[in-house]
């Protein structure tokens, strides 16, 4: 889970889930606490789904929030 997915790709990461920013990968101070939690819960869930998914090449898993 990282913000700089291009760099992650360059160094060979196979499964990537985009995060919000460098200082708060899974937060966002501009959101209300409930929305911030929903974002973190969602993206962590995408990472869990990614672990259970077979891929044949480097893959960025899309997020909805």
């Amino acid at each position: 889970m990282c913000n700089l997915t291009n760099i992650a790709k360059t160094v060979g990461v196979n499964k990537m889930v985009p995060t919000v920013s460098v200082p708060y990968p899974l937060g966002n101070p501009q959101l209300r606490p409930d929305d911030e939690w929903a974002l973190r819960y969602h993206r962590t869930g995408v990472a869990l789904d990614a672990l259970e998914t077979d891929v044949s090449e480097q893959t960025i898993f899309p997020v909805k929030i």
Binding site: Y24, P25, L26, G27, R40, Y41, R43
Partner: peptide
């Protein structure tokens, strides 16, 4: 938790 999402886990 915004860096390591232990609460969501």
């Amino acid at each position: 938790n915004v860096v390591v999402p232990l609460d969501a886990i």
